[in-house]
Amino acid sequence: MTAQGQTRADSLLLVDDLKKYFPVKKGLFKRVVGHVKALDGVTMDMAAGETMGLVGESGCGKTTFGRTVSRLLHPTGGRIRFRMGDGYQDVTTLKERDLKAYRRQVQLVFQDPHSSLNPRMLVGDIIGEPLLVNGVKGRRQREDAVVRRLETVGLNGDYRRRYPHEFSGGQRQRISIARALILNPSMIICDEAVSALDVSVQAQILNLFLDLQEEFALTYLFITHDLSVVQHVSDRITVMYLGKVVEQAPTETIFREAIHPYTQFLLSAIPIPDPDAKKEAAQMDGAVPDPANPPSGCAFHPRCLFASERCVTEQPYLVEAGSDHYVACHFLLDAE
């Protein structure tokens, strides 16, 4: 029924009811006075070779999701399974030293290419470091791999002898991508990977992502607040609000037949590069509530135009609204 339980034959990553709570500490002894539920039961499965877009306003938990799935953060609850060989490995509670195999498969590309590359290291060492960590001892061998990867991302192999500051933002993002690719991962988590770039460069990097996906059959989790970008690259889209999934569907479905009022609201806010485009002004205002103190029932109800009494008291769960289309909204259920 819910997205949970449903397992595709070709699933690469299965995330069930993932939770991540951050403690809120106060006072002299840093007593824990509450929790911010950054992820409050997120379920997602990703097929090999697909691109999942993850969208939502700032503070909705999309970055935390990327970091928890890649096990940079330790989950509070739930389960993460990843296909390794023939079976699935549960990586939820693996210790650091046992995570190596998983981390070879899942790599990250971050937003800011200025702070994600160590300014004191040569580009070649930055890209080659994952090899060293994973026991590729031969210097020559590492160097060959670095040159190959630099060329894959459209840079000159000789750039390995330079420092990150010698490169432009777009080139630095290419270096980050080369680093992510060096271990031949099957999945890359892109956390706002093109958001800091100028439009013309953003287009180059998006094209590179698309080319690499074809070449290496990569699976992407594309986390961004830019809905036009997500629409362009994603096969499916997950919309998050305050640590929960509110809607999940194939890209076309989301953009044509979004059901959740929050998704519709988000879509209506996209600026369209066409002065004649007539838009129905979404008159919903207000900001995301404080995640340490989320509203009762459906977290979106204070901003929702269709909120009923039930939305205030009862929390909606994800239900199937169409083929591969999941929504968490009482309004939908009531209409039926």
Binding site: S200, D211, Q231, V233
Partner: peptide
């Protein structure tokens, strides 16, 4: 260079 959903097919370069 901006992805414009009304003009471009998805995943096109």
């Amino acid at each position: 260079s901006v992805p414009n959903p009304n003009k471009l097919p998805r995943k096109s370069r």
